[in-house]
Nucleic acid binder design. Structure first.
Lengths: 240, 240
DNA sequence: TGTACATCAGTGAACGCGCGTTCACTGATGTAC
DNA sequence: TGTACATCAGTGAACGCGCGTTCACTGATGTAC
């Protein structure tokens, strides 16, 4: 039945497994460099490579093989470290959530007045997504994440707790951010409102859906300006 | 070099192109039915099949070949009608926008008081996304759409114009919905606010990110209830 | 009413691609003695 | 200090899959005369 062999299209059809003894041990068909057989810190290197691929080629381009290529190792190496694609994506998303949390904490600490804290956090939220659009999509579009992975679950929960805490602070009351604690309808509405606003704005912005609005505003308003005006407005008619 | 031939794995390796004269003309290896060679309305049938595939298997499962399978025609048939996958997706998204617009208009007409109109529209917006989650994702996540296609551009623009009109009505002022007309900062902020709120809520809901909140609310609050409370609240602290 | 012919819609085989996964193997590192 | 050996990280070939696209062909429909 002559199965196909795509991986050596141009080479000799069935090179024997034993390597030519004359070939130096350090040159093994990979890039003609001095890289050792063992990478040493491939786990982290693969995650860094994955982030580059994600931001360059988008979620669709983020495959095990693409990550291996980007890291300069054989395409089977990532499986060794992450099991499968979901494993890699989940660990990468966990890193994203940690970065995101750090940015939120920093923004929150940059202001003292509760309302200013809220504005600074919202700006930092959108800025993070603009700086890491691929990562933001990976984190919040959850296509192929395994949220039961401890590292990811923990980082994502911390991010939600931070959001709840922030909303509580701006309402000058304590909102339980930890799991299993109950929320009143008012508290839940406040959290959903803040998150929906900033998440919706972010998604529309990243997907280019706000272009229409921005183009029709006074002299090329920047997204930041629109965000600020949006958060300042009450959502009520001008007279009421 | 023995190229592989996947499409006839088990059959005779190279069936001659001329068919056996003994075989009746109507039975051609397709399903053993009486379906004629020409479908007659394949264009529409393919779009309907695509919608079924989209809602059943998600955006990732929506391929030209899957649509052809669902419609029961050869896998090369869709290319004939849509050119490529982007063409099919774009026409499908245009249909989605038209359905969406109709739902918005109906909701808007169902109430007379401006504030009630807004609430009804928001509920209809979320309800549409819940009823057609795949379609909503296709329309608003624009991964592979060609927004320059006239049919799609027109339907999407109409949808935006309707949104602007609705926001204007709730502010009891006219907001220019057509293209090229300018928006004040206040008007733009009001539109961005309404759209971000409802789009963000929808995306978080569809992606399961509101589960945490809903589970911690009084006795299994439905998403509708949370949406209502969210839209009613001012977003300001309780005392202010 | 019949007949030749152009046009069109749909078919099925084939090509080439990238992917995830498996597997025997290789080369380096660390450990026991 | 040396040596045998287990363990581990990474390799490269191979398999099978589904995909988009192309292409010669087929069968039906419509039109001119």
């Amino acid at each position: 039945m002559a199965r196909n062999a795509r991986e050596n299209k141009a080479g000799p059809p069935a090179r024997p497994r034993t390597r030519s003894a004359a070939k130096p041990a350090a040159r093994r068909g990979r890039a003609a460099d001095n890289s050792p057989y063992h990478h040493g810190a491939l786990h982290d290197a693969l995650l860094k490579a994955a982030e580059r691929v994600l931001e360059r080629d988008g979620l669709g381009g983020l495959t095990l093989r693409a990550v291996a290529r980007e890291a300069g190792v054989s395409h089977a190496a990532p499986t060794h470290h992450f099991g499968d694609l979901t494993g890699l994506l989940s660990e990468l998303a966990a890193i994203g959530f940690r970065m995101f949390n750090a940015a939120m904490v920093a923004a929150n600490n940059s202001e003292t007045h509760p309302l200013m804290k809220g504005m600074a956090s919202a700006k930092a939220y959108v800025a993070f997504a603009q700086a890491h659009p691929g990562m933001y999509g990976l984190m919040f579009r959850n296509e192929r994440l395994d949220m039961t992975r401890p590292s990811l679950h923990e980082a994502a929960s911390a991010s939600f707790a931070g959001l709840a805490r922030g909303v509580g602070a701006s309402r000058q009351e304590k909102i339980p951010g930890e799991e299993l604690e109950a929320l009143s309808l008012d508290q839940a509405a406040a959290i959903a409102r803040a998150w929906s606003l900033v998440h919706g704005f972010t998604m529309l912005l990243l997907d280019g859906r706000l272009k229409d609005i921005l183009h029709r505003m006074p002299e090329g308003t920047a997204p930041d300006r629109l965000l600020e005006a949006m958060l300042r407005s009450t959502g009520r008619p001008p007279g009421g």
